[in-house]
Write a protein that binds this DNA or RNA. Structure first.
Length: 626
DNA sequence: GAGAGTCATACCGGCCCTGA
DNA sequence: TCAGGGCCGGTATGACTCTC
């Protein structure tokens, strides 16, 4: 079905004027579009605008407001009632720019979710099951009921308004960080017991599904929308006496997230995305779940720190990283693929600054970072002068103000770190970086012919490009999977990283196209309860989806942190929201992050190796000296 | 050639920062 | 305190490409 036809069909189903983005959402949800491109909303808007411009007699659509379309056949009363209904509900936002927000309204999420759930159930996917038997009836509801089902704005944008209603105006849980999963280990206030009213609302919500089984008339459909709005998930939260988790101080009166004004003040995006908080707070969880997923790495020139990542993924990740930074003497890394997911470009030999982070002293470093720093120092020496003594290394660091402690002690630390680094790289099938010669250290690069080192560098750069391209291709493939298959892939990868106790969570009122799970991430001596939202439809995730999950963690066990996975993209708003400190941690996996997660855990990927024989310069040097 | 889909871009309004 | 400027998201539209 074409965009225009689909729009007309959606409007017939809904029975009221809709913004073209809502039309798009529903058309996608109902699988009306024969072709869904990269930005179906834009295309829908473009096509509808073009159709209207022609203004032919067979054009079934008319524009009633900027971006809002209705059926030509509708009378003025129908259109007006459809528009008025929203105004009354939302308190009247500015029209043009906020048209979309105006159109968004909480609707019968559960109805649409039921369709999806039933679908997933049929396909055998590990997904949420329909909540009640009545849901089956929902699917077979009459057109009016179908309209009510289709009504939900199923995307994250619709969530925007949910969050407006929902964001509790209460202090956030102290000590929690928007991106720092380990923060979830902080004492977290237990879920507040819902007020009787809230409990009632919840019951009503479920009961409502039974009511939905009855084919409503047009008036009922309108009422159903209102009821849906009232019984919407977040309204329950509103009724809660206390914030469950992640209460946002933004919601305090006067703040930008203020509610009750009837419209939301747009939050200004900070210049330079990826705040320090975001980048430094991935803490005890895999770095790829840090939010923004790849942003932090790009912003900071290195990956966020991690502590207890699983050994397997750590090894793989580390391998990447060593390849990235282990050649400090090289001038400049080949420009990597631009755009999202691009790796940091290494410039120049200042490895200490890179690896040492914020001006760490040499003796503050340990392990790989110390080895990186040593490699950086060595790279500044003349290779023709031969190996460098440990004392020279320590003194160089001291001259540069990079040494705080005892020189003697640093020498032993350096020796240990360098030996460990060699062992690490050897175990990883890589060429050792250092060689010892009579208590002195040299870079193995120094013994390689210049062209060989250069070729190796080029090969590494090519491998990096290949890895990037493969990952993007993998991400594309993942995005093409049917929803249930995407869920399976995600679940498999999550299990591989130690996520256990996975249970499908039935969320009445949750947006369609999603699967919800609770789980427990086992880390060293600890267990983090997680709420998982997997978008089966591969759509982008917006700010309010993050807010919604943060506000509903108590539905998941309760969970202390949330993860959102999609084959699509994470909008900047979602990243910002997830990065807000002092709130329950929500981690975001976009398509590339999911691909990386799978990669790191050998899910749906094959490992390829390119064996290359290189001279064992250490042995050859020893033989030569004998 | 017409219709449809996609992309790029200009325009506009809102928000926030900064300086007077 | 307020106006100006910059940034950003949303929207509309033209241009290009592809298919029939």
């Amino acid at each position: 079905m074409t965009f225009t036809d689909a729009a007309a069909e959606v409007l017939r189903l809904i029975g009221r004027p809709l913004h073209y983005k809502e039309i798009t959402d529903i058309a996608i949800e109902k699988n009306l579009l024969s072709h869904v491109g990269k930005s179906p909303e834009v295309t829908m808007g473009a096509r509808l605008a073009a159709t209207l411009k022609k203004d032919t007699a067979d054009n079934p659509l008319v524009r009633v407001k900027p971006g809002v379309f209705a059926l030509r056949e509708w009378d003025e009363k129908t259109i007006k009632s459809g528009l008025d209904g929203k105004k009354g509900k939302r308190g009247g936002k500015p029209e043009a720019a906020k048209a979309r927000k105006d159109e968004e309204q909480p609707t019968l999420f559960e109805a649409a979710a039921d369709d999806e759930a039933a679908e997933e159930s049929d396909s055998g996917a590990l997904a949420a099951e329909p909540e009640t038997e009545a849901e089956a009836a929902d699917v077979e509801a009459e057109p009016a009921g179908e309209a009510a089902q289709a009504a939900p704005a199923l995307d994250d944008e619709a969530d925007d308004d949910e969050a407006l209603v929902a964001a509790p105006a209460a202090p956030a849980a102290a000590g929690l960080n928007g991106v720092e999963i380990p923060a979830a280990r902080e004492p977290v206030p237990p879920p507040a017991p819902s007020s009787p009213r809230a409990a009632g609302a919840y019951l009503d919500e479920e009961d409502g599904e039974l009511e939905d089984a009855e084919p409503p008339g047009p008036d009922e459909a309108m009422r159903a929308e209102a009821v849906a709005g009232a019984a919407e998930l977040f309204d329950e939260e509103d009724d809660d006496d206390q914030p469950i988790l992640g209460g946002e101080d933004r919601a305090t009166p006067g703040s930008s997230g203020e509610q009750g004004e009837g419209r939301r003040r747009r939050r200004r995006r900070r210049r330079g995305r990826g705040t320090a908080e975001a980048s430094t707070s991935s803490g005890g969880l895999p770095s790829y779940v840090a939010t923004p997923v790849f942003e932090a790495r790009r912003e900071n020139g290195r990956e966020p720190p991690r502590s207890d990542r699983t050994e397997r993924s750590d090894r793989t990740e580390r391998s990447d990283r060593t390849e990235r930074f282990d050649r400090p003497e090289r001038v400049e890394r080949v420009e990597r693929a631009e755009g999202f997911g691009a790796e940091p470009v290494y410039r120049g030999p200042q490895v200490i600054e890179l690896t040492g982070g914020e001006g760490h002293a040499l003796d503050d470093l340990a392990g790989r970072d110390l080895a990186d720093a040593v490699a950086g120092i060595l790279s500044t020496f003349d290779r023709n002068a031969g190996a460098v003594s440990l004392r020279q290394i320590a003194e160089t660091a001291q001259r540069r103000g990079r040494l705080a402690g005892d020189v003697q002690l640093v020498q032993s630390q350096v020796a240990a770190a360098v030996r460990a680094d060699n062992a690490r790289r050897t175990a990883a099938g890589q060429r050792p970086r250092f060689r010892f010669a009579g208590g002195r250290i040299a870079l193995t690069d120094w013994l390689l012919p210049g062209d060989l080192a250069r070729l190796e560098q080029e090969a590494l750069a090519a491998v990096e490009r290949y890895r990037d391209a493969a990952r993007r291709a993998f991400a594309r493939k993942i995005s093409e999977l049917p929803g249930h298959a995407f869920v399976e892939i995600c679940v498999l990868a999550l299990e591989r990283i130690g996520l256990g106790q996975l249970r499908a969570v039935r969320r009445a009122g949750a947006p369609g196209g999603e699967s919800h799970f609770s789980g427990a991430l086992r880390t060293a001596g600890d267990e983090i309860k997680l709420a998982l939202v997997i978008r089966r439809d591969g759509r982008e995730v917006g700010r309010e989806r993050v807010t919604e999950l943060r506000g509903s963690l108590h539905h998941y066990g309760p969970a202390t942190a949330g993860w959102i996975l999609t084959a699509g993209q994470m909008l900047s708003g979602a990243r910002e929201e997830a990065a807000i400190p002092g709130t329950a941690p929500i981690s975001l996996f976009d398509g590339l992050a999911v691909a990386r997660l799978c990669e790191d855990n050998d899910v749906a990927v094959l490992r390829a190796r390119l064996p290359i024989a290189i001279p064992d310069v250490d042995l050859l040097e020893a033989l030569r000296a004998s």
